[in-house]
Design a protein around this nucleic acid. Structure first.
Lengths: 139, 139
DNA sequence: AGATTCGTTACTATTAAAGTCACATGAAAA
DNA sequence: TTTTCATGTGACTTTAATAGTAACGAATCT
């Protein structure tokens, strides 16, 4: 697969949504972020389903935040995107009862699980408003 | 791309190599592990270049460990495979000077970097012989 | 009614590993 | 030295999942 770049792109969108306040159409976002409007709708769809944003049809419609950004963690966004696969590396279920294969698989998974837990913990510790604040002070 | 499963598979191979002692041909490994001999040679090639194993051509040839497994960490193996990309998630270099995009990208990368450091640390803390030991006690 | 905007489906492009073939190169054995 | 074995390597196809594109029905506002 290609690298999944949805998380940073959706975060970027949310940060702008927060500044604009008024509903922003998928079309407009497509222009702003250099992507197709359909792609915007698909990425944002998960966030709507999780109650992070709302989408309004028809004239004057578009996308809007439903919660203050201080109450949206990066983990919330990640989950709304469907908790996509974190690793490009994988350890498939052992195909044989071989204990050595099991050990090799288990060790690889253990390292990945530890890393995944930390990754998700980092996402939980940061809110979208933290990013806005970091941007303002030049971080 | 597909999920990269080379690390656990090469570890499995090394564990068997350690038990067999004598050189094992790519052909034989292919049968043992259900993969093409060429694929075995390509995966093991990196390990040879790093001095973890040796490959002997001609009659009675094949692959052999060059070091005790207690002196081969999982990190050594990972590096020998070319330090493959860890994450399926990515945060591409910002395409604009937008500070919000920069913040979104930076936060994603920060979480990934923390996770990657832990992943590699876990790999450093485990040797191939640790896996053999774990397999023996049923771990 | 008509224009706008989302919601969704279907399809193609992209990317890197997985897997397959073929063959040149080198080493041992007969 | 000829044959056989085994690695080393290049070219190619397959696979899997996101990225990207196009189209159109449904819902909403003017």
């Amino acid at each position: 697969m290609r690298t999944d770049t949805r998380l940073p792109r959706v975060l970027h969108i949310l940060l702008h949504l927060d500044e604009i306040k008024d509903p922003v159409t998928s079309e407009r976002m497509g222009e702003m972020f250099g992507m197709d409007a359909s792609l915007v709708r698909r990425m944002m769809g998960g966030l709507r389903n999780q109650g992070l944003v709302t989408s309004i049809k028809g004239h004057g419609g578009g996308w809007q935040l439903l919660r203050p950004t201080s109450e949206i963690s990066l983990m919330d966004v990640y989950v709304a995107l469907g908790s996509p696969t974190v690793f490009a590396i994988g350890a498939p279920e052992p195909s044989s009862p071989c204990l050595l294969e099991h050990a090799a698989t288990g060790a690889t998974r253990a390292a990945m699980n530890a890393a995944k837990r930390l990754f998700e913990q980092e996402l939980r510790n940061v809110s979208v408003s933290d990013l806005a604040a970091a941007a303002k002070i030049g971080g």
